[in-house]
């Protein structure tokens, strides 16, 4: 298991966001945390990232307990829901930020930034500012920025929420390909089951702070283990998809 949550509990002002959450994700997997809003999926992601601390339980990354390690030392890249691009920095400066912090040499930073700009197919847009980009381009920049320090684990919080429906499908495929190409273990949060089913290798279904079921999209569709999963997943919609899988 590359990422492992063990008996995680988290309460915010009396609201139980996580109740005894345990699961593991193998290296190289692309996992989706799926669930209705308020089910605690974002909290799980933020705890893995070190943005929130669990009240109880252990978080392990690559076999090491990281509870007391700040997020920046966990080898994690994080793509925020609204991307949180730094408005007053160019695309290139945004991507370079994580490398500058590590005091990398100028030439090293430049070659890495160029490489990433090429990866996201925005080679000529490095000098642009975030406000000059489309929603999809912003997402790609956020993706590149998170990847710049070469993280071992990529976390994405609702990566498609801020993008209009037309380009969402396109971006989904793109992201899936990118993650495969980079080969980074990834977890993304979504409330959209279609997104989870089409993109992820592994779906972790959450409800009211608990894990309802963990499995491949196929398993979730064909062998729902609880009533909640049966109600929540509209299995018919994915029949075609399941046949391909």
């Amino acid at each position: 298991m590359y990422v492992e949550m063990r008996h995680i509990t988290k309460t915010f002002d009396g609201f139980q966001a996580s109740r005894d959450v345990s699961f593991g994700i193998e290296k190289g997997f692309l996992a989706a945390l799926l669930g209705p809003s308020g089910s605690g999926k974002t909290t799980i992601l933020r705890m893995i990232a070190g943005l929130d601390r669990p009240d109880e339980g252990d978080i392990l990354i690559d076999g090491t307990r990281v509870n007391d390690l700040p997020g920046s030392k966990r080898g994690i890249g994080f793509v925020f829901q609204n991307y949180a691009l730094f408005r007053y920095m160019t695309v290139a400066d945004n991507i370079a930020f994580g490398l500058e912090v590590q005091k990398k040499s100028k030439s090293e930073i430049k070659s890495r930034v160029d490489e990433l700009l090429e990866l996201i197919a925005m080679k000529d847009l490095g000098k642009r500012y975030p406000h000059q980009l489309s929603g999809g381009q912003r997402q790609r920049v956020a993706f590149a920025r998170a990847l710049a320090p070469d993280p071992q684990l990529l976390l994405l919080d609702e990566p498609f929420a801020a993008i209009d429906a037309k380009v969402r499908r396109e971006l989904r495929t793109w992201l899936r390909e990118m993650i495969e190409r980079v080969g980074v273990t990834s977890i993304f949060v979504t409330h959209d089951q279609e997104e989870a089913m089409e993109v992820a290798d592994l779906v972790i279904l959450t409800n009211q702070g608990r894990i309802e079921q963990i499995g491949s999209p196929r398993e979730i569709c064909l062998q729902p283990q609880t009533d909640f999963v049966r109600d929540f997943i509209d299995a018919k919609r994915f029949e075609a998809l399941m046949d391909i899988v």
């Binding site: 307990r65 990281v66 007391d68 700040p70």
Partner: peptide, 8 residues
């Protein structure tokens, strides 16, 4: 790893 980071 166990030493808590200062910023924490």
């Amino acid at each position: 790893v166990i030493q808590p980071h200062k910023a924490y």
